[in-house]
Each structure stands twice: as structure tokens, then as C-alpha cells.
């Protein structure tokens, strides 16, 4: 299959593996590598096969070549894609640069931070199913920690600001709203928040220490935005709202419970550790329920990373 014909990526029936048949494996030169928040870096790679086809919620495996320590690649969500290295978006098929955002917290990211512009990494992707485009009036992106990296494209796409992936995914701009509820430990961790704001996304912050936005969690933020007297009554949420969520497991579990209690549809993009990203190692499993309600470990790399939150046994 050629990369341009993967028209059903992001529209996989639940439980159907999304094999990496359309993935590209190639060197990817670093064209920009900058610190954007505390402990948080933005990496721009020259990787046309990934940038021209990736849809929001998909990821790439990125490896530092010629090293046995760190040995393996890491999964990084495709944050945004561009036709020009300076950041001009351009038409989707012409895009050749992809941005990735990562937080430094382990042996790989510590080493990656030191690789300068001009050097080559190895990248394979795009991988995973990605988000479907929700048909509701009001899309709510809920991010925890570094989880915003999987969500920006979906918001931009929904507002008609950008198009990603194959032509079949192109959507006419629609009226509607995109709200982002973003929780982090403190105010220094909101890397890329200006991208959300400049896209016209209504951003609300929560911090555990109260240094930015609401003091508390994203669930507290959801409560304050949607459950206050005078806000949209809960019964109307079901039809109008859709949540797309990415962050640490406990946070996603809490958001999933919040959504389920209000009968709001919710997709989660799981952040499971991965060794291969393509379905061969069985590392990244999550407990996913089938129609009968019983769960089995499923590979988040090729059956996700995006799942209907009601399918996850947290």
C-alpha cells in the first residue's frame, strides 16, 4: 500500500489491528530543537513520509542511531506538521516537517535533548489509529502533563485551521467550539500553550499548586466549566460535547469517569510504554473490554493508541 492510500487510518473498527503497512522507516534530520517550557523540548524533524500522511493522534517511533544505550526508539505523538521548516503549514500532501514535544524524564529523553540541529535521528511512522473527527458541536480537549502533544492537530482540524492526512479526511470548516482543559503540576509546564491559543482554541488551565489557572486537577476544571449553575445543563452534554483526552493513566481514568457519568462520549489516547511501536513486542498492552464486557490485554500501538474510554478497564 502506498502511503497516500491509507484512507481508513483513524477509522478502524474497534479491535482491528492498524498494521504499519503505510509506515515509512528512514533517517530524519533535526531542523529545530528548542526548549519550550520547564523540562520540555520541541523537536522538528525533516520526515516527509510521516509529515504528509500523519493524522492527529498518530505517533512515530524515534531513535538515536548508532547507539546501544539508549538502545530502543520511543513513541512520540505527532504534534503538528508543516510544509516549510520555518513553520508554514501548507497543504497536507506537501508537508515534510513534523514537530514532536517531549518531557525529559529518562535515559532516552536525556540523551535526545543533547542531539543538536543538523544531526539525523531514525523515525518510523505514522503509527497507530489516530483520532476520528468528532461530529459534535463542541470538542473538549483534555490534556494532562505532556498529553497536549496528541491533541493540538485535532483541535486545529476541527476549527478548519489545518488539514491532515489523506484527502478523504478533509473536512469543511464547521461552526463550533474547541475548548482545551489542561492540567499540570505547575505553571512552568505548559509547553506549546500559545499554539493552542493562536488556533482559536479556548484554553483553560489547572495546576496542582495553583500557580496558573484553577488550583486543582483537570476534573476540577471540567466541573467548574460544565457543572456550574447556569452552564449547559448536563442532559444537553450528551449530544453536544465530545472529549478527546491524553495524559497519565490516573488522570485519564478520572476524566473517563467524569464523562461516563454525564453520558458524554470520550476518546482517550493511551500513553503506554512501548518497545517497538509496531505490534511485535507486546509491551504496550492495556486492558480493553470487548462487546461482552470481558477484557483482554490489547496492544495500544496497533489497536490504539486512541480508544473509546468506555472500553478501557482502568
Amino acid at each position: 500500500m502506498s502511503a497516500g492510500t491509507s484512507s481508513t487510518v483513524g477509522e478502524q473498527p474497534a479491535g482491528q489491528p492498524c498494521y504499519a503497512d503505510a509506515a515509512s522507516y528512514s533517517p530524519a534530520r533535526i531542523v529545530a530543537h528548542t526548549k519550550i517550557a520547564d523540562n520540555t523540548w520541541r523537536l522538528r524533524l525533516d520526515c516527509p513520509a510521516i509529515a504528509s500522511t500523519a493524522i492527529p493522534g498518530q505517533f512515530a517511533m524515534v531513535r538515536i542511531p548508532h547507539r546501544s544505550d539508549p538502545l530502543l526508539a520511543r513513541p512520540l505523538a505527532v504534534y503538528d506538521t508543516f510544509a516549510d521548516a520555518s513553520g508554514e503549514a501548507g497543504e497536507a500532501p506537501l508537508r515534510r516537517y513534523a514537530d514532536f514535544i517531549y518531557a525529559v524524564h529518562g535515559r532516552f529523553t536525556t540523551a535526545l535533548r543533547e542531539v543538536p540541529v543538523g544531526h539525523e535521528l531514525i523515525a518510523w511512522g505514522p503509527l497507530g489509529n489516530g483520532f476520528q473527527i468528532p461530529a459534535v458541536e463542541h470538542l473538549v480537549l483534555v490534556a494532562g502533563g505532556i498529553g497536549q502533544t496528541a491533541l493540538l492537530g485535532l483541535g486545529r482540524e476541527r476549527l478548519g485551521q489545518a488539514a491532515y492526512g489523506p484527502a478523504s479526511r478533509l473536512q469543511p470548516p464547521r461552526s463550533g467550539r474547541v475548548t482545551c482543559c489542561w492540567g499540570a503540576r505547575h505553571a512552568g509546564l505548559f509547553g506549546g500553550i500559545e499554539d493552542y491559543r493562536s488556533a482559536g482554541i479556548d484554553v483553560h488551565q489547572a495546576t496542582l499548586d495553583g500557580s496558573a489557572g484553577l488550583r486543582g486537577t483537570v476534573v476540577d476544571l471540567l466541573d467548574s466549566l460544565f457543572d456550574q449553575p447556569g452552564a449547559v445543563p448536563p442532559a444537553a452534554h450528551t449530544r453536544r460535547l465530545h472529549i478527546a483526552c491524553c495524559g497519565p493513566d490516573p488522570m485519564m481514568a478520572a476524566v473517563a469517569r467524569w464523562a461516563a457519568a454525564r453520558q458524554i462520549s470520550c476518546d482517550v489516547s493511551l500513553e503506554a510504554p512501548m518497545a517497538c511501536g509496531i505490534g511485535i513486542c507486546f509491551t504496550c498492552v492495556a486492558r480493553v473490554r470487548d462487546d461482552s464486557g470481558s477484557w483482554d490485554y490489547r496492544r495500544t500501538c496497533i489497536e490504539g493508541p486512541v480508544f473509546d474510554a468506555t472500553r478501557i478497564e482502568w
Binding site: 489491528p17 509506515a23 522507516y25
Partner: peptide, 12 residues
């Protein structure tokens, strides 16, 4: 245990 069932790798 390092190659899935083959199907996963047929793109590579």
C-alpha cells in the same frame, strides 16, 4: 517473540 506473527512486519 520479537517479530509478532509476521503480519505486523510485512510493511518493513
Amino acid at each position: 517473540g520479537t517479530f509478532g506473527y509476521g503480519r505486523e512486519m510485512s510493511g518493513f
